[in-house]
């Protein structure tokens, strides 16, 4: 298990490889579909300080508010591939060092990871109560009124948030490997 403090530098990230287990410490930024579209179309500055050397988490959480304080009910990863058209540009624009999600991403993101020095981290999909247990506090939220609870830019302070490197800064992807192997098995099963 490798412990990563956020913000994180390029050298630390380039030292990670596919299969490494990491534990994240610091403030991460939740951003999913609407947030990615917004980051590409408007390039907002309010999120810049949190993303420089920072971490994006593809997650639309369940949150409850009591007396102005937000708490996390459930917060597992959402499917990352939907952000494929945006992510490479977001990584370069904001200097993002890691993206957490599930299901992996495509060639455009993989190329950006290599060029910019960033990694894709896979969290266990559906393990939303387990993962919420690593959130210590919710230091802020942006665009809550405009985007709604599942799509807002939430800030989570995490301590030991677990994930696995499945796409690294050397251009390797576990998802490409598994996809190739399953395609070969599929061809055999259909008699191709």
């Amino acid at each position: 298990m490798k412990h990563i403090d956020i913000p994180v530098d390029e050298k630390t990230i380039r030292g990670l490889g596919v299969g490494d287990e990491v534990a994240l410490h610091g403030v991460i930024v939740l951003a999913r579909d609407a947030a990615h579209k917004l980051m590409i179309e408007k390039r907002p500055d309010f999120i810049r300080p949190h993303l420089t050397g920072g971490v994006i988490y593809h997650c639309g959480p369940i949150m409850l508010e009591k007396k102005g304080v937000w708490s996390v009910v459930s917060a597992g990863p959402t499917t990352s591939i939907r952000e494929e058209p945006y992510e490479g540009t977001v990584i370069a624009e904001y200097g993002v060092r890691a993206v957490i999600g599930k299901g992996g991403m495509g060639p455009k993101t993989l190329a950006a990871l290599k060029q910019q020095g960033a990694v894709y981290l896979h969290a266990v999909g559906g393990a939303a109560v387990y993962l919420a247990g690593f959130v210590r506090s919710v230091p802020g939220v942006y665009m809550l009124d405009e985007l709604g609870i599942p799509e807002a830019f939430w800030l989570f302070e995490v301590d030991g948030f677990p994930a696995i490197v499945t796409m690294d800064a050397r251009g390797r992807s576990l998802h490409v490997k598994v996809d190739r192997a399953s395609s070969r098995a599929f061809d055999a099963l259909i008699g191709k």
Partner: peptide, 17 residues
């Protein structure tokens, strides 16, 4: 582990309900 926690704490096991 997540299933057991969700059940014990009566919290949605996945955030996407």
């Amino acid at each position: 582990e997540n299933v057991a926690m969700a059940r014990a704490e009566s919290r949605p096991m996945c955030q996407d309900t």
